[in-house]
């Protein structure tokens, strides 16, 4: 552990005073084992209270603080200064409207999430006990249950930047989570939704999403599994 000076270069925009975004640099002293989020806090709490970003849990489980960090989509609370170096540029994630500094409008993202019926649909009566599920059936969708809806994947996708109608990787991940759950009965409906023009076929397998996911979800693989389920009409 050692104290280091970190240069944070932040892309800033205040809708109440600025016509367009501009860069601002902050020099802050932190431990090299600190998170980038800690460095942002030092800047906000000791230098400029107007610096604005979302955050809550500070350890990579709530999905609040996705941003473009040295060019790649990352959660600021999961990146350690030692690993990313002392010159850090931070920009808002791309493809969603910027509201202020690193805060973007998440509503279009959540609307796309809602469009894939992201909840278990099963109309049979399970009675008073749990529905049984084998460990193998449970394993089929394990990976996609880890999603924290941070939007890092969707906003790293070049297709999404060009076409905000595309449902995007995160919505497909959340559809996958139910399509491959043996307890669910609405796979067909979701596959129909994802077979539309705004659905999976927009994906060109750029792999940016998998690289961006802070939960290590194999996003591209999930999208491929959904494509195959549509093509071969089975899950």
């Amino acid at each position: 552990m050692a104290k280091v000076q970190v240069e944070l270069k932040v892309k800033r925009y205040n809708p109440e005073t600025d016509k367009k975004p501009h860069w601002q640099e902050f020099t802050v002293e932190v431990e090299d084992t600190d998170r980038v989020l800690d460095a942002l806090h030092v800047a906000k709490w000791t230098q400029d209270g107007t610096l604005t970003f979302r955050r809550s849990c500070a350890h990579g489980v709530c999905g609040s603080d996705a941003m473009v960090l040295n060019g790649a989509n990352r959660l600021a609370c999961l990146e350690i200064i030692k690993d990313v170096g002392t010159k850090i540029t931070l920009e808002p994630i791309r493809g969603l409207p910027v509201i202020k500094d690193l805060v973007v409008d998440m509503e279009p993202f959540f609307a796309q999430y809602r469009s894939v019926l992201p909840y278990l649909i099963n109309t049979s009566d399970p009675g008073y006990t749990e529905r049984y599920q084998s460990a193998e059936d449970r394993a089929r969708f394990d990976d996609t249950t880890k999603c924290i809806l941070c939007a890092a994947c969707t906003t790293s996708c070049p297709i999404y930047w060009g076409n905000s109608q595309y449902v995007g990787p995160a919505a497909i991940v959340n559809a996958h989570r139910f399509i491959f759950d043996s307890r669910d009965q609405a796979a067909e409906q979701r596959l129909d939704i994802l077979n539309q023009r705004s659905g999976v076929w927009k994906c060109r397998t750029a792999f940016n999403c998998s690289e961006a996911c802070p939960r290590g979800i194999k996003v591209t693989q999930a999208i491929e599994e959904v494509k195959r389920a549509i093509l071969y009409d089975r899950v």
Partner: peptide, 20 residues
């Protein structure tokens, strides 16, 4: 409460027989 969460879709870890 646990059974209800399972019915809501919660992916619990399972025993070899498929129970929670």
């Amino acid at each position: 409460a646990v059974i209800e969460l399972e019915h809501f879709g919660l992916p619990f870890n399972r025993t070899p027989e498929g129970k929670i």
